[in-house]
Simulated scan of single mutants.
Amino acid sequence: MALLTPDDLKDINKQLQEADSIVWKVTGLDIKGVCKALYGTSPNSEKVGIVPVTSGNGIIGNFSASLHAITQYFGFDSFVTNMSDVSGYYEAVRSGADIILMADDHTFLAHNLKNGKIANNQPSTGIIYAEIASRNQKTDSKDVLVVGLGKVGFPGAVHLVHKGFRVYGYDTDRTLLKRAVSSLGIIPLDIESPKKFSTIFEATPCANTIPETLISKNCVLSTPGIPCAISEELRLKYDVQLVMEPLGIGTASMLYSVL
């Protein structure tokens, strides 16, 4: 997935409120409700320490502040450490954090210091967006399309297969597609004879990956991908229910999974 930019994280509370609204419209639950149903957990006064990390490309502007807003939005007591890196980790622990949130260029993790549970953002994000797609109340079809079968898409595809969906898959990387077909038994999408889907889960860092030939009216498109997988023109033309938010839904999934 693409690295976030400060622009992606503008007005994060507004983005979360809009995401909550569309998730409710699609599933009948808000984001917290989906997480609770998925993991069987609820917050219980856990304190979250957010540690800025400077390695690699360094600290993304607004990232720690956005995580602070996100954790508070979902009902967690959280704080951002004054120090970064190892010193920040030490500060978080000394300040009573139950859960640590920290990220470098490769891994964004949540680690519950009380029970030892740890979560990586990539599979956690794939699973929650797939779960939202699976709860599409607008169709009885068990067919779902997964576009992108990498570190986010593959765990989401696994989740959908385990839930009993007939999963069609596509990835421009033939190795990733072959792995998903052989290990999960998904159906490779025939782009020469496309079919329309009422439920799509997309996990790529590319824009406009979903062509008109695959979209049915009132289709639910659940995607953590940035930039957007569908053009605004097609979204409006087919009244696509677009579940897309840059950071909060995946972070909620991580936190609920380690409770």
Results as ranks from 00 to 15, higher is better:
M1S: 15
L3Q: 15
T5H: 00
K10M: 15
D11T: 07
I12P: 01
I12D: 07
I12W: 00
I12H: 02
N13H: 13
K14R: 14
K14L: 12
D20T: 02
V23L: 08
K25T: 15
T27A: 10
T27L: 05
D30I: 09
I31T: 05
C35Y: 08
A37K: 13
A37Y: 06
E46K: 05
V51I: 12
V51Y: 00
V53R: 09
N57C: 04
I59T: 07
I60S: 07
I60F: 02
N62D: 14
S66W: 01
A69I: 01
A69C: 12
A69D: 12
I70H: 00
Y73F: 15
G75P: 11
D77L: 09
S78F: 02
V80R: 06
T81P: 00
N82S: 11
V86D: 11
G88M: 03
E91H: 04
A92S: 01
V93C: 07
S95Q: 11
S95I: 02
A97C: 04
I99N: 06
M102C: 10
D104A: 04
D105N: 10
T107G: 04
H111A: 14
N112H: 10
N115C: 03
N120H: 10
N120D: 14
P123W: 05
S124L: 01
T125D: 06
G126K: 00
I128P: 01
E131T: 11
T139Q: 06
T139C: 08
D140A: 13
V144F: 02
V146Q: 02
L149H: 02
L149E: 03
K151I: 02
K151P: 03
V152A: 10
G153E: 09
G156D: 05
G156N: 01
V161W: 05
K163L: 07
G164V: 03
F165A: 08
R166Q: 15
R166W: 00
Y170H: 13
T172M: 13
T172R: 13
D173R: 14
T175S: 14
T175Y: 01
L176T: 03
L177Q: 14
R179E: 10
A180Y: 02
L184R: 05
I186G: 05
I187S: 03
L189E: 13
D190F: 06
S193E: 09
P194S: 01
K195L: 08
K196S: 02
S198H: 04
F201A: 12
T204W: 01
P205F: 00
A207T: 09
T209G: 07
P211R: 11
T213N: 12
S216F: 03
N218S: 11
N218R: 11
C219R: 07
C219Y: 08
L221T: 09
S222T: 12
P224D: 12
P227I: 11
C228L: 12
C228A: 15
E232S: 13
E232W: 05
E232Q: 12
R235P: 03
K237S: 12
D239N: 12
D239G: 08
L242A: 00
M244E: 11
E245N: 02
G248T: 03
A252T: 08
S253C: 14
Y256Q: 12
L259S: 00
